[in-house]
Amino acid sequence: MAEQLLTAVVGSYPQPDWLVDRELLRQLMAPRIRVEQIWRVPEPLLEQARDDATVVAICDQERAGIDIITDGEIRRESYSNRFANALSGIDKERHGEIIGRTGVRIPVPLVSGPIERTGPVEVRDLEFLRAHTDRRIKITLPGPFTMAQQAVDEYYGDEESLALAYADAVNEEVHALFAAGADVVQLDEPWLQSRAEQARRYGVKAINRALADSPGTTAVHLCFGYAALVKDKTATGYAFLAELEDSAADQISIEAAQPGLDLAILKSLPSKTVMVGVLDLNDPEVEAPETVAARIRRALDIVPAGRLIVTPDCGMKYLPRDTAFGKLRSLAEGTGIVRGEIQ
């Protein structure tokens, strides 16, 4: 029965203070363009340092007892900017500017040519993860809808066309990641929720194109934003979620703990495995395992154990490392309590 109630992380894990300037990282908060000044280690040693920090992230997840782990996104300045800026068609000299999800103007990639994947971006990351653990592994990519929302377009002249071009690039990377040994490939699509009108027009179309003919398990994560940035989150539900029942993704990942989400919304995803956030990343205190167990039980009132994976609400990038580790340990221990009840 333990296989029916797995634990996983959403994606990121805290980067060490010796690797990144965490205060600058917090000020920038998920940058869309490259911000290489956050790295504390000089370039000749940077790749080795990021490898070492990735091993730490892997080991922390294993020690905490997590079933499906990631590389912690240690090599990234944000969840999206590394992949998004590695594609051709992104202007190397200029950037654009948009109003972000919080109403602040932010710099973003400027699309001045055709979006194309010219080579692997995260394949080495996946290979490194696979070489350093025997557990199931997941790797994340920014989704095509979100990347299109996080860019200024001077080439396509149509936001749907831009999203579909991103989808083609993502699809090539998805296939390469599965070929390199991924168990799960996840698309991060937080902007589906904040741009619901556009998402209803072409969000699922872009996701399905990005995941077309995938040979392994695929997932889509959507959220209200990092807890470090967004404090007030609605309990009434996502503006865009039920539509993902028609997507090609096998798994849908949502946050639920911080907003106190009404989990009845999960009834709208009857064919999907759901990853439900049971760790509130806005709370600096580490949840007791019984608190986690109670949140899992509420999810099990709606979703059977065979379709439920329990996770943090979102990426843990902006937490202190000891807090993140403590929360993951409570996640595993709380899940263990509930596993014992359903056996």
Rank of each mutant, 00 (worst) to 15 (best):
D283T: 11
T146S: 15
A288G: 06
R201Y: 08
I106D: 00
N85G: 07
L281E: 11
T133W: 13
A210R: 11
A151S: 15
I68A: 10
A288C: 05
L6S: 08
G96N: 02
I68G: 11
V170Y: 00
F145K: 05
D67I: 03
K138V: 10
E189T: 08
Y318M: 06
K272L: 11
E116F: 00
L126I: 07
I337P: 00
F178R: 04
R75V: 10
L229S: 13
R295C: 13
M29S: 15
V104I: 14
G11A: 15
Y155M: 02
R76Y: 06
L87S: 02
T311P: 03
A294P: 01
E255M: 12
R136A: 15
D280V: 09
A49E: 04
L6Q: 15
T70H: 07
P16T: 08
V10F: 12
Y238H: 04
I99K: 15
G336I: 02
V204G: 05
V20R: 07
L269H: 10
E189Q: 09
K317G: 04
E159M: 11
V303E: 04
T54Q: 04
D134W: 05
V338F: 00
D17K: 13
E62N: 05
Q61T: 10
M1D: 04
V56E: 15
P114V: 13
D313H: 07
E173A: 08
K205N: 11
D158R: 05
D313C: 13
R75C: 10
A235P: 14
Q251S: 01
A305T: 06
E172N: 03
L308A: 07
D232M: 09
G113E: 07
R298K: 15
E189N: 08
G336Y: 00
A212T: 10
L319A: 08
I254R: 10
N81V: 06
A256L: 12
R307Y: 08
R307I: 14
R307M: 09
V274W: 08
G96T: 03
R50F: 07
A182R: 03
A196K: 10
A228G: 10
T102D: 15
E173W: 04
S268W: 01
L319K: 05
T118K: 14
V184H: 03
S253P: 00
R195E: 15
K267C: 11
S247H: 02
L24P: 05
T146W: 00
A169N: 00
S78G: 12
V41A: 06
R117H: 09
L308E: 03
Y79I: 09
R22D: 06
R76P: 02
Q27C: 09
P109H: 03
E43R: 14
V56P: 00
V230A: 06
E43Y: 09
T7Y: 02
A299D: 11
S194F: 11
E73K: 07
A332P: 00
L187R: 10
K272G: 10
A196L: 09
T335R: 04
E116L: 13
Q149W: 05
L308S: 02
L45I: 00
V185K: 09
T102Y: 05
E62Q: 14
P31V: 03
G225T: 08
T7I: 09
E116W: 01
G100A: 14
A53M: 05
